[in-house]
């Protein structure tokens, strides 16, 4: 009889602690593109988006088709910045919020590339960046396209109510962002922010059952991943010039800070993408959410700040709520996940 393995077998070298990986080749974010819907386009980050659409439908027949087109256009915009065509890409990694990740798969049909579809809800961008960086680390690819999208109307319709249904949203609810972001990951020969380490998060469930209360459902996962990342790598929070969470909104951001403060970690250079995308007068309650939320803020603004050397080291933690309409209608709570990538330039 074979001997029972009691200890986890870990490769030495690139692993750090229980959940983190240190990259040797350091994949480079060689180019990034973002497209945004009309509401995001009239927000404070308008100048940073590559394309702003005047309406939510993009003259397509449905919101799902509109989301797909946003994703396709942002992919081609990102490729265009490096003068590349889809043929220069080895893998396409994408995820979105719609059932069976249709936006990503249908976009992959158009790009005709080897495709890995992922689902991490709103954490999809960082999940994609992590997988892409690992593929590059293993020499399995030279260039990888990572993309994500979300659309306010298609998500509302899938997760909540029809767009024209009238009701009052609670103050802690968030607005799903209409937009898409794509990034070309390349080898270390290219210029741009490098992925220095990765922390893959665990699923954390604070037993929140209210599907409007995403911030509180996701904040414990974000806190857990930030804490693991810093302890795995033996770093202080002020090692980073910016720690960025995906889409916790005002309520979730406060909870994340409070959880980490209990553990003795005070985040000084910390912000959340969810509170950056809209002006207060745009009436989005606790902030923004959705796959495109962190894509628009990170790829739109932070990426440029890093290129222009205003930011050197950034920890980017994207959070995702892993529920579906079926689970919450059956009375189950909302589990959440957060992944982190550390970037440097």
């Amino acid at each position: 009889m074979a001997e029972t393995v009691t200890e986890k077998i870990r490769p030495v070298g690139k692993r750090a602690g229980n959940q983190s990986m240190i990259m040797e080749k350091k994949a480079v974010l060689a180019a990034a593109a973002t497209v945004a819907g009309p509401k995001e386009g009239s927000g404070p980050l308008a100048e940073h988006y590559d394309r702003i659409y005047p309406d939510n439908l993009l003259k397509e027949g449905s919101f799902e088709k509109a989301e797909r087109r946003m994703l396709e256009e942002t992919c081609f915009l990102a490729l265009g910045k490096l003068g590349l065509s889809p043929d220069d890409i080895d893998f396409f990694i994408a995820g979105d919020l719609l059932n069976q990740i249709i936006s990503s798969s249908f976009c992959a049909r158009k790009l005709a590339l080897p495709f890995l579809g992922i689902y991490g809800a709103c954490s999809s961008l960082v999940e994609g960046l992590s997988l892409g960086a690992m593929l590059l680390e293993g020499n399995f690819a030279g260039r990888i396209l990572v993309a994500t999208s979300s659309h306010n109307c298609s998500s509302e319709r899938q997760y909540r109510y029809p767009t024209e249904y009238g009701f009052q949203r609670p103050g802690y609810s968030q607005q799903t962002v209409t937009g898409a972001g794509a990034v070309v990951l390349g080898s270390s020969l290219e210029e741009g922010p490098r992925i220095e380490s990765i922390t893959i998060g665990k699923v954390v469930d604070p037993e929140i059952k209210d599907p409007y209360n995403m911030g509180m459902a996701m904040a414990p996962a974000a806190a857990d991943t930030i804490y693991r990342h810093l302890t795995d790598l033996g770093r202080d929070a002020d090692y980073y010039q910016l720690i960025l969470t995906g889409d916790l909104g005002e309520v979730g951001k406060q909870l994340n800070e409070d959880i980490l403060a209990r553990k003795g970690l005070n985040l000084l250079n910390y912000t959340d993408c969810g509170i950056q995308l809209y002006y207060p007068h745009q009436k989005v309650h606790a902030g923004a959410s959705g796959c495109a939320c962190c894509a628009l803020f990170f790829l739109g603004k932070v990426y440029k700040d890093m290129l222009e050397k205003r930011l050197g080291r950034v920890l980017f933690v994207a959070t995702g709520a892993l529920h579906s309409t079926t689970t919450y209608q059956q009375g189950e709570s909302i589990p959440a996940i957060a992944h982190a990538v550390a970037l440097e330039i």
């Binding site: 414990p220 980490l260 209990r262 553990k263």
Partner: peptide, 11 residues
């Protein structure tokens, strides 16, 4: 949830 930072009562 043993190893997680989450304290349900506190939450």
């Amino acid at each position: 949830n043993k190893e997680l930072l989450l304290d349900k009562k506190w939450l």
